[in-house]
């Protein structure tokens, strides 16, 4: 009887310890509950400064993707077009990672299933390394030639900044083009315009 009571007590104690095991604040799977760091909505509108930010990156990528998908050179073709990303030139005075814009557009276009992408400048070196390795160190000695792009994507990011007193006005213009490299013909072009106004005297947008 005594052993049963002891066993029951140990089970109860173990259960209590397991359940109350959240001695660290925040519960299971959380640490640093009291810290000042909080997770936010990655898609929320960010207005901390007038610089090119996450909201501008996301809205530009979405607008351009939607416009591209409506282009007849993408949506109304018999064969899924093969596209290669080229450089988006940053012609502004601030640092903008334009590759982030094109990468986001590429992800969205690939998800649509209406476009195929070829390796671009950034990962072509890796592809070539792999091909060299294949021909030298593995049994597959013959490689097929890489395919040509039906279209390339290029573009520019420009900005105009003006300030007067406490008010600063920033205008961004992101333009992109879809070019047929065989003919040099620009078959699609679109732009995204963004205006941001900051004022020291008031908070908001």
């Amino acid at each position: 009887m005594k052993s049963i009571t002891l066993t029951s007590l140990s089970i109860a104690a173990a259960a209590l310890l397991t359940l109350s095991g959240c001695s660290a604040k925040g519960g299971a799977g959380m640490t640093g509950y009291d810290s000042n760091v909080k997770y936010g909505d990655a898609k929320a509108v960010e207005t901390l400064t007038a610089d090119f930010g996450s909201t501008d990156l996301q809205s530009t990528a979405e607008t351009m993707t939607q416009s591209l998908l409506e282009s007849r050179y993408i949506s109304k073709t018999h064969q899924t077009p093969k596209v290669r990303l080229r450089t988006i030139n940053n012609l502004t005075y601030e640092h903008i990672d334009t590759k982030a814009i094109t990468d986001k557009i590429r992800i969205k276009l690939l998800k649509s299933g209406l476009v195929r992408f070829l390796a671009d400048k950034a990962n072509l070196e890796e592809v070539n390394d792999e091909r060299t390795l294949t021909t030298t160190a593995t049994t597959k000695t013959k490689l097929s030639a890489m395919t040509d792009a039906d279209y390339i994507i290029t573009g520019n990011v420009r900005s105009i900044k003006k300030a007067s007193g406490d008010v600063q006005d920033v205008y961004y213009n992101i333009s992109m083009e879809l070019v047929d490299p065989q003919s040099g013909e620009v078959v699609w072009a679109d732009e995204k315009e963004i205006r941001k106004v900051t004022s020291k005297s008031s908070v908001g947008w």
Partner: peptide, 26 residues
């Protein structure tokens, strides 16, 4: 299966604005 980013928009006094969005995925 997908959501757009939150997008800021401004509407002037007593005005209407049309928004158009296309799902990027089938």
């Amino acid at each position: 299966i997908e959501s757009t980013a939150w997008k800021p928009i401004t509407i002037h006094k007593n005005q209407k604005v049309q928004i158009v969005e296309t799902s990027g995925i089938p």
